[in-house]
Nucleic acid binder design. Structure first.
Lengths: 343, 343
DNA sequence: TTGTATGCGTTATCAT
DNA sequence: ATGATAACGCATACAA
């Protein structure tokens, strides 16, 4: 019940040495300061027997450190997205002997400020500020200089480090992958063809779209259609795909802007008696858990959540420091069976 | 960058009072000890201007508390399961002014011990030990007396509090729901009919099954079949359902033991040209995010993750204390469209 | 009403 | 080669 009660002073007492001697030995500086091997052994022995564990809070009070990082996100609920980011952050933090505080602001600025304060009150050494969908955002004054944005970009003019997936690159590669498979009749599900036909505030949508159009444009191809969906849920994909079929299109390739849209597209295609990938090839983004469950499996570009989390914490922990520049992490292509090869 | 540097002593100095005066005023005991209103106002004013925030680490060092709870789970990745538990725990903790440390053991006992130690080193007041699927487990010596099991049961003989979903009750109600809709031809997907035909170590499987059989038995009904799946993933449900159809069954009601099995069953049924709920009614467990995306929506008993998390933390924070007894939380039925009413 | 002294568990700086 | 002492920021019993 009170395994924690063994203090350094207790060890010193039990070993018959002064507190400073115990401190030196236990902090591994015994040799350096030439404490006799005999005494060192005894102190260590006693510490072990008593189950001594240093009180990090106390040590931290002295040197102003806590070996603790705050992880703050707008929501940690949605699918497993946050889960993997947190796992990556955790792994990297634990590796370095750090623990993670966690907080969820639910998008409420005031709540976010409160949480940052609560973390700072507990002397966190740094803060990861994560967003569940990539977007631009500010950083509270108090957190500046010890914060990294995760899956978010700093608002214009703010110098805060950021780690985000390379959406533009993934967009390019999705188009190139289809071109390589011989596809030329390409339809977009999720965004429209017009410059501003993208759901508001979604960096992912804007950048994926730009990558796709650039890659296509490079070989003189234009998408045959694009359908804007305000929300990217299965039903939106379902509707957009039915709409597409109703317009007379009966084959080609679909680029769905996320896997949930793709799921809806699968349903619509199946209901219309169409086959994937024979009638329609499909490529998507996210690598949602669902993607592997579909028949056929969905070929998709994974958001590297785990690595994003890892990199964010590493950024905080290394000398690169939390300031300066945005780091873009490649989105790995997960090949399943939704793309047909046409010569 | 160093907003934290304002100390209580700094405030006292700036306000021209002694440190104890500042301490008394700021801890709200000024009236009690009859500090002049004038002085109190000045101290508070200065504190505000300087942006003073008490250093909780320091305060904690004194009174041995940290207003911090550790949340340790075997895995926080799988779907959103953990996400909602953590959210519930967070909400309850924040409400009481506590922060949450988070850790993931990946099922490794040694790692779990390390994490508990790391948390205890940081003086956490208590620990939530969560499991992603309900099972029996031990509790490390160090954590006893300040731990609550979440979605897990203490091994025989260990006196630790636990909060789990009421699986047995959900099992009963799933069967009763089908009976009320007039179904008598009932098939189980996930577990077999035999006493020991249940995936190993899954409390959920055992208890749901028992509840189902009890409810059915009460009106003299026996399931027509049951198919054991060692893992409860979509492909397992798909295979079991194809198997069932191959055996000649062409209608009735399916109780799938989780939503991922149900997803596989949907696929198999659709591929066979069968319709839900006209040919087969379905009821399931978990309320996986997926359940709402299916056509028709899947009727399923939700694991009350959020509430589980809340209750676990509340248990730790209230005087009930972390010891004694297991608390079972009801699993709400989410009605969608997968059950047909047969007069 | 306010100030002084002490301790929480460490570590670092000085003497011895 | 080891021990005493101060300091980190806060709270509290006790004096003034």
């Amino acid at each position: 019940m009170k395994a924690r009660r063994v203090t350094q002073a207790g060890v010193a007492h039990a070993a018959g040495v002064s507190r400073s001697t115990a401190s030196l030995v236990l902090s591994g500086r015994g040799d350096e300061l030439r404490i006799s091997g005999e005494v060192q052994r005894r102190v260590r022995q006693v510490a072990l027997e008593l189950g001594y564990r240093p009180n990090l809070v106390s040590a931290g009070l002295r040197d102003g450190t806590s070996r603790t990082i705050g992880f703050l996100s707008d929501t940690i609920a949605t699918s497993q997205l946050a889960g993997d980011m947190i796992r990556g952050a955790l792994a990297e933090a634990h590796r370095a002997g750090y623990m993670l505080f966690i907080g969820e602001s639910e998008g409420d600025i005031a709540e976010e400020e409160r949480l940052v304060d609560a973390m700072l009150d507990r002397q966190v050494d740094a803060v990861v500020i994560a967003s569940m969908f990539t977007r631009e955002r500010g950083v509270s004054e108090a957190a500046r200089g010890r914060a990294v944005l995760l899956n978010a970009l700093p608002e214009h003019g703010i110098d805060v480090a950021a780690v985000v997936p390379d959406e533009y690159d993934a967009g390019r590669r999705s188009a190139e992958r289809l071109l390589a498979a011989g596809h030329r009749r390409i339809h977009l599900i999720g965004v429209g063809l017009g410059e501003d036909e993208v759901p508001p505030e979604t960096v992912a949508g804007v950048e994926r779209r730009r990558g796709i159009l650039d890659a296509l444009g490079a070989v003189g191809v234009t998408p045959e259609s694009g359908r804007l969906c305000r929300i990217w849920l299965p039903d939106d994909g379902w509707k957009a795909t039915r709409d597409l079929l109703a317009s007379g299109v009966d084959g080609g390739a679909l680029i769905t802007f996320n896997d949930r849209l793709a799921f809806g597209a699968y349903q619509a295609l199946h209901e219309a008696g169409l086959t994937i990938p024979d009638d329609f090839s499909m490529v998507s983004f996210d690598d949602h858990q669902l993607a592997g469950w579909l028949h056929p499996g969905l070929t998709t570009f994974a958001i590297p959540h785990y690595e994003l989390g890892e990199r964010a914490v590493r950024r905080l922990l290394t000398d690169e420091g939390p300031t300066g520049g945005t780091e873009r992490i490649a989105m790995p292509l997960v090949e399943r069976g939704s793309i047909a090869e046409h010569g």
